[in-house]
């Protein structure tokens, strides 16, 4: 067994920090969804969060762009602390893209308009520039030919790639993925994971909640295991899949591998 490296600690980031969570608690009524979360993520780092359902994985990343409000502790994104100040929240959201399990594309506009909407509305980009940018992003996710269609005319895998392009068009520093392949048919999972792998290689900071262990093994810098609202164990993929230490981690991995 190898000695725990600094990476095996959730509070240590690789490189300069871009996401800092300190003592974060989150309640839904009486239910505590997050318990004393401490975590630092470095620039260009890819963190994969795994764990059983209801363990707080989604809540964790939804707190990072304030889709959920944390009840205690501090969250600082790229030097901006998330408080009730709406200006800070908007700024963090501009720098943070999110990809959802159910895609959440806007069904009433075309694929191209899905991607140009935020740059035009939020960044006040001229239509022409926004469309050029959007086409570049659609090429990056390999579906430029679908630009004029409506989301409902695409397959699940294509829709999720559009959702990734939509997030990329804001040129965020951080991308959050909330189980991006869980709603997809098996044959479409790979096309989405391939795109995500390329993004990871391009140096964007990513936090990925997923059940795809192959992806975690191949792409993650660190793997975080969460259960019951806590971070149970953190480590490199090798550490994780070869020699997990905590009983809950072993049990979880035994169930899914």
């Amino acid at each position: 067994m190898t000695a725990p490296t600094p990476l095996a600690d959730a509070t240590h980031a690789k490189g300069a920090e871009i996401i800092v969570l300190e003592g974060v608690d989150k309640y839904f009524g009486d239910f505590q969804a997050l318990r004393d979360i401490n975590m630092r993520v470095g620039r260009q780092e890819v963190v994969v969060v795994i764990g059983p359902s209801g363990g707080g994985k989604s809540t964790l990343i939804r707190c990072i762009n304030r889709l959920e409000k944390h009840d205690r502790g501090r969250i600082v994104i790229d030097g901006i602390e998330l408080t009730d100040d709406i200006k800070n929240i908007q700024e963090v959201r501009r720098e943070t893209g999110m990809v959802f399990q159910q895609f959440n594309l806007f069904p009433h506009v075309t694929v191209l308009e899905n991607v140009t909407l935020a740059p035009r509305q939020v960044r006040r980009m001229p239509k022409k520039d926004a469309e050029e940018l959007a086409m570049a992003m659609l090429r990056r996710v390999k579906i430029p030919e679908q630009a004029r269609k409506h989301p409902g005319q695409l397959s699940g895998g294509q829709q999720q790639r559009v959702a990734i392009a939509r997030a990329l068009a804001m040129q965020p520093k951080i991308l959050l993925f909330d189980e991006p392949t869980s709603a997809l048919d098996p044959e479409m999972i790979k096309e989405v994971l391939d795109v995500m792998e390329e993004l990871a290689a391009s140096g964007i900071t990513m936090i990925v909640v997923t059940h795809e262990m192959g992806f975690a093994r191949a792409v993650a810098d660190r793997v975080v295991f969460m259960a019951d609202g806590e971070i149970v164990e953190v480590g490199t993929p090798e550490h994780f899949f070869r020699s997990p230490e905590e009983a809950r981690t072993k049990q979880f991995l035994a169930q899914i591998l």
């Binding site: 700024e91 959201r93 959440n104 806007f106």
Partner: peptide, 8 residues
């Protein structure tokens, strides 16, 4: 949520 996440 998707629109919020985009900073709109």
């Amino acid at each position: 949520e998707a629109a919020q996440a985009l900073g709109m």
